[in-house]
Design a protein around this nucleic acid. Structure first.
Lengths: 286, 286
DNA sequence: GGTCCAGCATCAGAACAGCTTACGCTCAAC
DNA sequence: GTTGAGCGTAAGCTGTTCTGATGCTGGACC
């Protein structure tokens, strides 16, 4: 019988590409991962890994096995969620990941609406890192966002549900095209917001000239108000209105979603959190 | 993470009812099974077993978990079948279970039609025992039959596909009702054929008086020809026609099916066998 | 071309899990 | 009351699965 623990390592390898990265993500030594994958290869009876230069590559057989591993692990998630739903109600610790703006604006009222026994533990995390953290079991559930220009999570092991949508604004009273020569305030490279701004500008026909790299939208708005550059900010981050910053809505929208491991939605605490988030009226009368 | 090996034990316990029986079926000592189930209970965090008199009973939580265990084990079967399909074609050993008549009539021509690399290993087995043997991994595939009066396999871990249907005959030129006072030749208790005859007679309003208990239909027909009693025989068992036995078709039919572990149909050898069996014309011009 | 470092495999040893054997307990049948 | 089936626990052994050490290979950089 194939061992799900080994299958999990293979799946992670498909995502991360190196044994060392898998080991770090799942808190093993590379040696252990290497041995386990060798054992899996032996049991499978097919070559799964081949050395390519300094790293390993998955054979076609391994990719096929990853697909099946996904299905197996998903069923195991389902089983565990069902057990939790049976044992306990929505109580105990719930590890929540959230992008910074959500942590500041959405979560405080949301957490207040959770069942009393639930102990939320919030970690700020960029949406780009969420699927890895969910797979590794570091988080139970996460709030993420996606922009029109940035592809959503494609990881099959993660399940997402849309919560709401909001507009994106330019921090001055011009069109996006007219801001082509202004200095820009961008988020740090590697974050979703950084990618979004770059793509939006590219779509408008120019490459933004970066002056500042700031992740916190409050700081971004303060810089914009001080004439330090222009930026794109989502509606959620622009409330309450920042004095001294005029906003122009753009035909770009940002969607906020909830994410968790596929099959794990039945977990009572996850389900309770999902319900509270879905029930929130974020923009009651904008 | 829940351990599929332990889940398998729990599933088997749901079928067999005692730890001792599970141990025997899966070739462990009862002690090992007991320990593993205790560990599963600990990991699940819910009571799964409760002593009832001398045996154990599954709690509602355990039954829920069995459902999920089934889904997990099914996915694992799928994964292994896919691996085999990738590694090798239809070759290597294939453990086939078959009811005796099938072994004598159907299998010889069928085996000849299998791909050359395939090494069939046939075991005669009563359909009533097939699902247990499949679950235990003692067989890869089996030929079974079901009668109108006898419920088919209900085991969710086994998948069946109908191959063909045939009529059942009474071994003399009378109606079933007229045979109520004759001595009967029955199969051994516990077999499907035994149950079928009893039920058919009960449906006709009487309880058959057993004289002989014979499983082999050739012997049954020889006894019938010798005036030792009447019996019900399926069409397949009555070919070629037995001299001295007149047959009366009854409005009872017997279906022959192929069975294998759910999800395992993708295994190349199983699939090849299935194809050959489905392609056989058993009753070309009856 | 030489050096450095990242990445992987292999080995030996330690920790752990899982199995068997032995034994005791309980409950039902007779 | 006796017997035997069924389950659980303790002790001991074995195989698995980690870690840590070591060596090899290939790409990057000087």
């Amino acid at each position: 019988m194939l061992d799900p623990r080994k299958l999990r390592l293979l799946r992670e390898l498909a995502h991360r590409g190196t044994i060392a990265a898998v080991a770090e993500a799942l808190t093993f030594t590379p040696s252990a991962v290497s041995q386990q994958l060798s054992a899996l290869e032996r049991e499978a009876g097919v070559p799964l890994l081949e050395r390519t230069g300094r790293t390993v590559a998955l054979t076609p057989a391994a990719h096929l096995l990853v697909e099946h591993a996904q299905a197996v692990l998903e069923q195991l998630e389902r089983a565990e969620a069902a057990l939790r739903a049976l044992t306990e109600g929505p109580r105990g610790p719930l590890r929540i990941g959230a992008f910074p703006t959500a942590a500041r604006t959405l979560l405080p009222p949301a957490l207040a609406g959770l069942p009393p026994g639930l102990e939320p533990m919030v970690t700020e995390i960029d949406p780009a890192d969420v699927s890895a953290a969910l797979r590794a079991g570091e988080l139970d559930v996460a709030l993420i966002h996606e922009y029109d220009f940035v592809p959503p999570i494609t990881d099959r092991s993660v399940e997402t549900h849309a919560l709401f949508s909001e507009a994106v604004f330019l921090t001055q009273r011009t069109s996006l095209e007219e801001a082509r020569d202004d200095p820009w305030i961008l988020a740090k490279p590697g974050t979703l917001c950084h990618t979004m701004t770059i793509r939006a500008c590219q779509a408008a026909g120019f490459e933004p000239r970066a002056r500042h790299h700031l992740d916190d939208f409050d700081t971004v708005l303060a810089f914009a108000a001080a004439g330090q550059g222009v930026a794109l900010v989502p509606e959620l981050a622009a409330r309450p209105p920042h004095p001294g910053v005029r906003l122009t809505p753009l035909p770009i929208s940002r969607r906020t979603l909830i994410a968790f491991r596929r099959g794990y939605g039945g977990h009572p605490a996850v389900s309770a959190f999902h319900q509270v988030m879905a029930g929130m009226t974020v923009f009651q009368s904008s």
